[in-house]
């Protein structure tokens, strides 16, 4: 049985419909990531699932209690532990249990050392950690998180994703998390739902979705940034699927420096691909590339085909 199920849900912001006829069911034990570009309606759908915004059409059925961790980590001017205990009080947890559960949640988020610190003295990453800990502490049937890693530097982001990944599965019956970064979705979720312009454009297990996106638009969003018109169809490539120094000759049109080499955009006779080179290359160089695994093919009308 689904813990939360949206049926043909539409949500309006003012006069604009930002979520249109979305069907989504979240099962017990699942971690679902909502992924999509800015303005796709992810946060609005999450708020509709949590009952924070009303739906204009359709309905949302919830089995059990739903807690929503909003995007901005608003913390009271109290200690970290008092903030978590406050959330437990709002949730209706008896006073006698609050301290123990607050400390457990902070430990799960590796934030127990912050317990006595005033919330006002926390860094951005620490605030996010405490913000997620509050959601974990209440142990809801469904935990909804809206971009819990937004605005963090790379190292803090990575550490928080790793810690959250394990904590979430123990924290709630099911989890829906809005993420902006594809890597976060792969790290956290059993199922990824890609939203575009207010509708669900694709969904599936992360690896399966990446291997077989249902449309060219979804493929581009998932990182397929190379496009070749070949043999009456379209080949889409990712840098991970293009090997350097292969048999096809092309001209470098753009170079982006990276930690271990460069990412080069290479123009071939029938399109452009992006490829990582371990050595420096310059715009105008002629280089060889080859198509490896993970290249997908779309036929006429954007219908996916086997390569």
């Amino acid at each position: 049985m689904s813990l939360v199920e949206a049926r043909a849900v539409a949500v309006r912001r003012g006069r604009r419909e930002v979520v249109c006829d979305v069907d989504l069911a979240v099962e017990r034990g699942e971690v679902v990531a909502l992924l999509g570009p800015n303005g796709a309606g992810k946060s609005t759908l999450l708020e509709a699932l949590g009952g924070i915004v009303p739906v204009a059409r359709g309905d949302v059925e919830r089995s059990g209690r739903t807690a929503t961790v909003l995007q901005t980590p608003g913390l009271a001017r109290r200690s970290v532990r008092a903030n978590v205990e406050l959330a437990l009080a709002w949730w209706g947890v008896p006073r006698a249990q609050r301290r123990r559960r607050a400390m457990q949640a902070l430990e799960r988020m590796r934030a127990e050392h912050l317990a006595r610190r005033p919330a006002a003295a926390l860094s951005g990453g620490e605030r996010r950690r405490v913000h997620v800990a509050r959601g974990i502490a209440v142990e809801p049937d469904v935990l909804l998180l809206d971009e819990p890693f937004a605005g963090l530097d790379g190292e803090t982001h990575q550490a928080l994703v790793e810690d959250t990944s394990s904590a979430l599965r123990e924290a709630a019956g099911a989890v829906v998390v809005v993420v902006h970064d594809r890597a976060d979705a792969w790290a956290l979720a059993d199922r990824v739902v890609v939203m575009m312009r207010g509708v669900v454009a694709a969904q599936g297990a992360p690896r399966e979705l990446l291997a077989a996106p249902p449309s060219e638009e979804v493929a581009r969003f998932l990182g397929y940034d190379g496009r070749l018109e070949r043999d009456g169809g379209v080949l889409l490539t990712r840098p991970a699927g293009v090997v350097a120094d292969g048999p096809e000759q092309g001209t470098v049109t753009r170079v982006i420096g990276q930690e271990d080499g460069v990412l080069a955009e290479v123009r071939l006779p029938d399109g452009t691909v992006r490829c990582r080179f371990p050595r420096p290359v310059a715009v105008g160089d002629t280089v060889g590339v080859g198509l490896g695994e993970g290249v997908i093919r779309f036929g006429h009308g954007g219908v996916p085909e086997d390569r």
């Binding site: 924070i52 807690a67 608003g74 001017r77 406050l86 709002w90 949730w91 509050r134």
Partner: peptide, 26 residues
């Protein structure tokens, strides 16, 4: 008082009385 804090309290099911107490304290 930051809206984010009050909205978060509402999202965790804070009653009107609890919300008023939070706002007064903040």
């Amino acid at each position: 008082v930051p809206r984010s804090l009050l909205d978060q309290a509402r999202a965790y099911g804070a009653s009107r009385r609890a919300l008023g107490a939070l706002a007064t304290r903040e």
